[in-house]
Amino acid sequence: MNQRIALGRRGEDLALAYLEDANYEILDRNWRCRAGEIDIVARDAHYLICVEVRTRSGIGFGDPLESLTADKLARMRDLALAWRGEHPEFSGLLRLDAIGVLLTRAGEPKLRHIVGLGARN
């Protein structure tokens, strides 16, 4: 496994643990279809939540969440609807979240959770 993939996997593992600790129910991880991939699908009392995880090993290229573009958000919305289409037992509002994970050699990982990049019925 190359370093980039290992870094991404570590960030997703930390994001998943963070969500579980916050009492989110994890429904899926790395769900794929022809249009792309959702890193984490979870739910809370009110929403079905699709989470994009962005991980970096430093800030030389900026904050991990700075790499989220309008195109990626549109793709996330499409993927969330596709996931829900394959899982009709999970109805209700959809919410898009992002978790940025900064992993540096100097200290503890830093996570930042952006709640509600977009919500849809």
Rank of each mutant, 00 (worst) to 15 (best):
residue 50 C to A: 11
residue 49 I to W: 00
residue 82 A to P: 02
residue 24 Y to P: 11
residue 16 L to H: 13
residue 78 D to Q: 06
residue 33 C to K: 04
residue 93 L to Q: 13
residue 9 R to E: 01
residue 15 A to G: 12
residue 75 R to E: 04
residue 53 V to G: 09
residue 114 I to N: 07
residue 32 R to F: 04
residue 37 E to L: 05
residue 74 A to Q: 03
residue 95 R to E: 14
residue 111 L to V: 14
residue 66 E to L: 01
residue 85 G to R: 05
residue 74 A to C: 02
residue 19 L to T: 06
residue 107 G to S: 12
residue 109 P to C: 01
residue 20 E to T: 08
residue 57 S to G: 15
residue 96 L to I: 11
residue 42 A to M: 03
residue 6 A to S: 12
residue 7 L to F: 08
residue 120 R to E: 12
residue 58 G to S: 13
residue 91 S to W: 11
residue 118 G to T: 07
residue 27 L to C: 07
residue 104 T to A: 09
residue 98 A to F: 03
residue 52 E to H: 07
residue 85 G to N: 13
residue 64 P to F: 13
residue 13 D to E: 09
residue 50 C to N: 03
residue 32 R to T: 13
residue 46 H to I: 08
residue 39 D to Y: 00
residue 70 A to S: 05
residue 98 A to H: 08
residue 24 Y to K: 10
residue 102 L to A: 00
residue 118 G to M: 05
residue 44 D to N: 09
residue 46 H to T: 14
residue 15 A to I: 11
residue 48 L to A: 05
residue 47 Y to H: 13
residue 43 R to Y: 04
residue 92 G to Q: 10
residue 120 R to D: 15
residue 79 L to Q: 12
residue 112 R to D: 06
residue 38 I to M: 03
residue 107 G to V: 02
residue 72 K to C: 01
residue 52 E to C: 07
residue 55 T to I: 05
residue 60 G to V: 03
residue 51 V to Y: 03
residue 56 R to N: 14
residue 86 E to Y: 06
residue 81 L to V: 04
residue 20 E to Q: 11
residue 86 E to D: 07
residue 119 A to N: 11
residue 101 V to L: 13
residue 78 D to K: 04
residue 48 L to R: 06
residue 111 L to Q: 14
residue 117 L to E: 05
residue 92 G to H: 04
residue 8 G to V: 13
residue 55 T to C: 09
residue 56 R to Q: 15
residue 87 H to V: 06
residue 5 I to F: 15
residue 61 F to V: 05
residue 12 E to P: 14
residue 29 R to C: 07
residue 98 A to M: 09
residue 119 A to Y: 02
residue 99 I to E: 04
residue 54 R to T: 15
residue 6 A to Q: 15
residue 4 R to Y: 14
residue 107 G to H: 11
residue 58 G to V: 01
residue 93 L to Y: 13
residue 119 A to W: 06
residue 45 A to W: 02
residue 119 A to E: 15
residue 76 M to N: 01
residue 90 F to K: 09
residue 34 R to V: 01
residue 93 L to H: 14
residue 25 E to S: 15
residue 71 D to Y: 07
residue 10 R to N: 12
residue 30 N to R: 00
residue 115 V to K: 10
residue 86 E to G: 12
residue 69 T to W: 03
residue 87 H to D: 09
residue 41 V to W: 06
residue 29 R to N: 01
